[in-house]
Design a protein around this nucleic acid. Sequence first.
DNA 1: TTATCGATGAGGGATTTCCCTCAATGACGA
DNA 2: TCGTCATTGAGGGAAATCCCTCATCGATAA
Lengths: 240, 240
Amino acid sequence: MLRSAPAEDAFTCARAFAGAESMDRLCVLVRDFAAPMGYDRFLIFSASANAEDPIDRIYWVEGDWFEDGSFVDADAYVRRCPVNRHVTEVRESFFWTKTRDAEGERYRIVRHPRGRGVHGLQVPVFGPTGLEGAISFGGLRIDTSFHTQLALEIIARAAFVAMRARLEGANKPAATALTDREREVLTWIAVGRRHVEIADTLGLSERTIENHLRRIRKRLGVTTTAQAIHVAIRTGEILA
Amino acid sequence: MLRSAPAEDAFTCARAFAGAESMDRLCVLVRDFAAPMGYDRFLIFSASANAEDPIDRIYWVEGDWFEDGSFVDADAYVRRCPVNRHVTEVRESFFWTKTRDAEGERYRIVRHPRGRGVHGLQVPVFGPTGLEGAISFGGLRIDTSFHTQLALEIIARAAFVAMRARLEGANKPAATALTDREREVLTWIAVGRRHVEIADTLGLSERTIENHLRRIRKRLGVTTTAQAIHVAIRTGEILA
DNA sequence: TTATCGATGAGGGATTTCCCTCAATGACGA
DNA sequence: TCGTCATTGAGGGAAATCCCTCATCGATAA
């Protein structure tokens, strides 16, 4: 149930993620690392800007999340799970417990999961735009030591970054309305940069930034740049 | 110059940060951990939203950053250093090198720092609002192995979180709880209304709308109203 | 070859937003 | 009773954004 050197193992394993040649291989790396610690259920998703529906895209679900042998229906279940919503309110990983009684399923965020039910650890992944994704590891009897928590945080981050590069890098939405440059400019606006700062960062002139913003507003059919942020997040052009 | 088990040591050390009883103790933990790897210069700061001046507050500076025995003047030097600006453009830690020739100081972002000059590793710290801070470790001959990089990332994050809690804990930015009126005003902004239009709609004066927006930005800890939209959507204050 | 588009940049100026600082009132909790 | 907070409103002015219009160049497709 325990790894003798979770830290060392996590560091070594983390390196393998970048070189994995397939999604299958990435899943194997996660599975093989977590299994000795009691984790045999996995969920990895990218985050949306919408706190009401925090999941943008589900990269991977595996394991008996329902405790009844049925498979998770991602859109009917994972998106409604309060644990997956709680991740929008935290700044570090947390343990959770799911039990089931006569009144249905009951979730709790806990420091030390124990007893009956499925337990797990959820790890948020942050980046320049804030919450970018999350990973849940689940199981019936899991290792909840501090070293295991840190080790899984490392694995979670490496796995998420590798899966996102693989799944999102190649097939960004084809039906996107904004060009790559427009999206980039708007993303910088969304995180608070001024025109002159964005120009500096991108090595362009302020006039060019103004022009991109004008085109963005026209293309999205909005009157203000603030509204463009709002619309772009809703349509998935930019993430929060 | 090398630690035999950087991963294990980092995990063990990370735990000590949360329980440190003073800033001095936190500095000792960082110093003692990094010294065997050749790092004897330290800089920790919290990030602002301003790409032109990415440093909000400097928590700790230590070591011979000028290579001439003089101490770093934080506001005259650290804020201007391009390495500290580069951190606003990356999503993972990076190595840098600083050399000095007849033309002055020269900085480079590198994969494998070597040779003369001061070398270092800078670690960004991300959270719900994106880049929240960063830490630079520097030295003349540093360990740049992958395990050391991961270990220092763990130490960096733990140190930053602990120092921020200690220095900023009393006035941490509220990531929640806009008042009803504030939320209403921001919602109108998000759907493209101008200040004068919102004032008209709500039966208030334009000055009142201005004031609400100022309080909103302050409460969310952002620099622009566009960014406030972005953060408010992510935290669920307003809907996308 | 031609037209269109993305990306880049600009002049001149108007409008809007934002900053700094100040102030009053009512509700509420210690 | 007092302090804090939300809500309201303001003066004066600076900074930033936005508007209108124009322009060039390279890539790409018809």
